[in-house]
Nucleic acid binder design. Structure first.
Lengths: 219, 219, 219, 219
DNA sequence: AATGAATGAGCATTCATTCAT
DNA sequence: CATGAATGAATGCTCATTCAT
């Protein structure tokens, strides 16, 4: 696949970073409200899609006036970008830690899926927005997202290769294909988790891991 | 899950059906152009999303003027509906036939995945639009789509149950969960197939089937 | 002067030209309304300045809705461009004819001033807008205007040189300076003519010519 | 002409005057920064026009925050007014002195033009803004400017009349017309001087005087 | 069957202005 | 003195939709 577009990609947390020149010196007030802004945008984009959402919707979700939104985002597009990046470097860090740990393959897969789906039920909409709306961003705005997504996928592929080396994983699989498939399943169930509150997070995690590891047919 | 929203849902083909009162009496010319209209709309919606696409985009893709589009669609929303429904009853019929056939579980799964992914590479964008954009339709417009989606999912669940009864499939799986997962994997790879022309359709089909049936770990 | 910015510059009449692809085949209806649009824009820009004018003002001056204005202009900026170009190739043609004629220097100067100021009292605001607002156009949009302005100024300079050769004009003048000055005086009085309806066009023309030719002191 | 709009008009220097109630008691610091504020506004208005300029532009040119600008100007409009008035009473005083002096007509004209154009190259933009943007001020705000402009023009007309009485100036000229024309030429070249740094101030002054006095044709 | 023309509501964005700190 | 934060009205522009021809 020439473009790593179906994967989770992470960016440096914009809030922690220094988007505004003065951001670091600004009292926590700005930073705090900026987080609220991103979360409001995430929620609205998740519900209505990028083009279906209006800046008015976002402002309203924050409890401010439409014009005031531009104190936090230079444009609607930048809001999308920041939502997509939101929380992602934290996420990829977690992935790195999981992969670095010395534990059996099955445990790692379970940890990865847990990390992925837990993120969905916590960060809510940001993840969904990332998966479904980031393609509406112009290419320049996607570079950081892309890069971290690649990192994520490669970590997953390495884990699969280690599983093969350890003799746990079938040596005839295509690690690239399986990595994408795992991400696909997780995203699919992640969206379901957001949509349907009656779903049980931990059951879903276990069932996903079971499907990926063991498949459906008797041995 | 309270809403069957992550599944393929099929509607009667608008073209074959009788949407317009006068449609049947009209010369085939209209029907032919209507198909072109739906396909143009599908392509544009797939690329830009429902809200990101303009009626001007669609008209241009058809080679007609913007105003003329309204000869084929009453509204942009109806265009989305028809795109989502396009080809779906044919598709669900095919599913019924596959399930009715007396053949081993593995063969059925392979046939189902083949049907699903082939559709993607032929009908192109309509399927993608259905999966990604149909939620932008108001509920009333989604009823037919929903109903056929349910039919589809139930057929898949029945197939899994038959596999269990036949002793081929593990009897500890949740057929509901597995059905959704199969659809999730197929949609995920379907989108990849559209995005990335270098992907090989038949390899992808086999790999999907293999993952679902056997999983990743050695027995 | 590195930029010929203080001179009258002419562009091919947009209306006569082929801005829209289909413009030539369109019935006169479009062309006719387009002229009205340009004239409305000219009037409004002249009164309020480019940035001070709103598209609403222009639309209102045309008697149409604001949104409909965009059927005639792609953007407010393009409206300014077209106003600046409006009527200018006709004007430069007239200048060419005046210069080509075999007549004494004084008669030519009178004709040139007449042409310049008459234009003001007929085309009204377009000329004023050109002089006062064209610098708000981005450079790309000014190229045609600039080029024709240069042509105009060069014709004026040639006329002065011919006057020198004929022994009528002082041979110690800077033709470049005098050309700019003539244009400056004409623009200045042109603006006055628009502002003050009580001014007499022909008296003003004669006074301008007299000043330029003879100056103010006794010989 | 019913409105003396094409002439230089001068107002009491706001800085020297007492605009703010407390202004005089404030340490010179305020006065100094106020001058910077006016000059920054002048520069920005000259480049972008009144409506094209933003308070943010002005604040940035001063190196302060947008909100802080309101410490120096009550409103954007007041900033324009003050820019237009800036330096004008000094200027009109100079004009009065020139006219009061007992010197030949030609010397006075040269002095007047020198004063006018020198102002352009020193006070830069304020003069240009006055000439090009003051009409965007509401009438109430223009009264002082107008009054001083009238004074200026009358001084010029008196000078011309004195020239006629002295037998130096042709007695068939319209002093009103010539006064306006002199101002027109000076404004035109003044704008050129600001735009084009390669122009030589003193050459331009001499050429303007020469044109006005002697005209272009041989005696 | 198609189009040119127009509409009007909606939207992203800008910006002058205010004010508590 | 100065600023960060917010506002709300305005503005350029887009776009789905309509309709006479």
């Amino acid at each position: 696949m020439n473009e790593a577009d179906n994967i989770i990609e992470l960016g440096e947390s914009t809030v922690a970073g220094a988007q505004h020149a003065a951001e670091q010196s600004k009292p926590k007030k700005y930073a705090a409200k900026k987080v609220l802004a991103i979360e409001a945008a995430a929620k609205v984009f998740a519900e209505k899609g990028f083009h279906g959402a209006t800046t008015q919707d976002i402002a309203q979700a924050m409890g401010i006036q439409q014009g005031s939104l531009y104190y936090y985002f230079k444009s609607k597009e930048q809001a999308l970008q920041e939502v997509c990046e939101y929380g992602f470097d934290v996420y990829v860090e977690r992935m790195k830690k999981i992969c670095a740990k010395n534990q059996p393959f099955e445990a790692k897969i379970l940890a990865i899926i847990t990390s992925h789906l837990t993120n969905y039920s916590q960060k809510d909409s940001a993840m969904k927005v990332h998966n479904e709306q980031r393609l509406y961003l112009p290419l320049e705005r996607r570079s950081r997202i892309k890069q971290l997504g690649t990192t994520y996928r490669e970590l997953l592929e390495q884990t699969l290769e280690q599983g093969i080396d350890a003799g746990v994983v079938r040596d005839d699989i295509d690690t690239h294909f399986i990595a994408y498939s795992i991400i696909g399943i997780c995203n699919s169930w992640g969206a379901n988790l957001i949509r349907d509150e009656s779903l049980n997070l931990f059951e879903t995690i276990e069932q996903c891991a079971d499907l990926i590891l063991v498949g459906t047919v008797n041995k």
